[in-house]
Design a protein around this nucleic acid. Structure first.
Length: 288
DNA sequence: CTTGGGTCCTGTGCGC
DNA sequence: TGCGCACAGGACCCAA
């Protein structure tokens, strides 16, 4: 599933067709994703203009002219795909029948002013949507306990040292905890720890202050590079325009079990271990 | 409080 | 080709 860079890429892709545009028609094809969808969601979306499209952690927030905000989480397999009637069809007058055929798991469809269609498709249905008053969106139960944005000013060396101090959990688990820092997931934590030379199984409270501090710029670096690359495309993630991201070609350890370490001169072989049910990839020669 | 495990759901790729 | 199992980008919830 999408981590922060993928969600930011999706947000950027959606912005041109959603921001400042009205939702002509919202269609909701099932009553629930991970949780029940809000009451009368289709009616509450239809006719509303999207005044802003924001991101908080792995959530996309669409502010509406009604004063409500649509909160969207993509879960593991959620996608937002944009389609539009083709030029030839438009000349034949097929305004409403030229979108791609509906796919299995197309759960919510937003037909936007200007003919673009935004389709939320989520096979595993770990995704979520909710509607909440815009002025209280930050206090929504899904969002209120999330830690600082890693690319923002509130996330710094002093903060991270304080939060990791004394913790007995593996650093991998700590960085995956969204209450500590927002938006990291399994791929980017593995990549960050490789760049920092820290083993994923190391206890968070047993890392020297200097090395903890080094994590901050490395987290920013990895996420920044991934956003720049349009995210990572594994099984089913695509950018909103259907393009593939390409950060996956830059993975140094993730999904490289048995492969050679990329650090010049290192003869290590990438290992995979399971930590609390998730795969961790690391170089045993580089990471301690 | 922290920590670990189970759980939700569908799809895919692998070994036999 | 079929079958069963492991595994997949998340994160809530509960027990200890």
């Amino acid at each position: 599933m999408p981590e922060l860079p993928e969600v930011e890429t999706v947000r950027r892709g959606l912005a041109p067709v959603m921001e400042g545009r009205t939702i002509r028609l919202a269609t909701v094809n099932r009553p629930d994703l991970r949780w029940p969808l809000p009451e009368r969601m289709a009616e509450r979306l239809t006719g509303q203009a999207v005044t802003a499209l924001r991101r908080r952690s792995k959530y996309i927030l669409a502010d509406l002219s009604s004063g409500e905000t649509l909160i969207i989480h993509l879960g593991m397999s959620g996608r937002m795909l944009i389609s539009a009637p083709g030029e030839s069809a438009r000349m034949q007058g097929k305004f409403h029948h030229d979108h791609p055929a509906p796919q299995k798991h197309d759960h919510v469809i937003l037909d936007m002013e200007g003919e673009a269609r935004v389709t939320f498709n989520d096979a595993r249905r770990f995704g979520a949507m909710d509607l909440t008053p815009t002025e209280k969106a930050e206090d929504h139960w899904l969002i209120r306990d999330i830690g600082p944005e890693p690319l923002g000013n509130m996330f710094d060396e002093a903060y991270l040292r304080e939060r990791l101090k004394g913790r007995n959990t593996p650093v991998k688990s700590a960085l995956l905890d969204q209450r500590l820092v927002a938006g990291l997931g399994n791929i980017y934590v593995c990549e960050v720890l490789f760049r920092a030379g820290i083993s994923p199984v190391r206890k968070a409270g047993r890392i020297g202050a200097e090395r903890v501090s080094s994590l901050v710029p490395l987290i920013r670096e990895v996420l920044g590079e991934a956003i720049e690359a349009g995210g990572s495309s594994l099984r089913d993630y695509r950018q909103a325009d259907g393009e593939l991201g390409y950060f996956q070609h830059t993975f140094r350890v993730y999904d490289r079990k048995g492969g050679p370490c990329v650090r010049p001169g290192c003869t290590g072989v990438i290992r995979r271990v399971v930590q609390s049910g998730r795969s961790s990839f690391y170089c045993p020669d580089c990471q301690h």
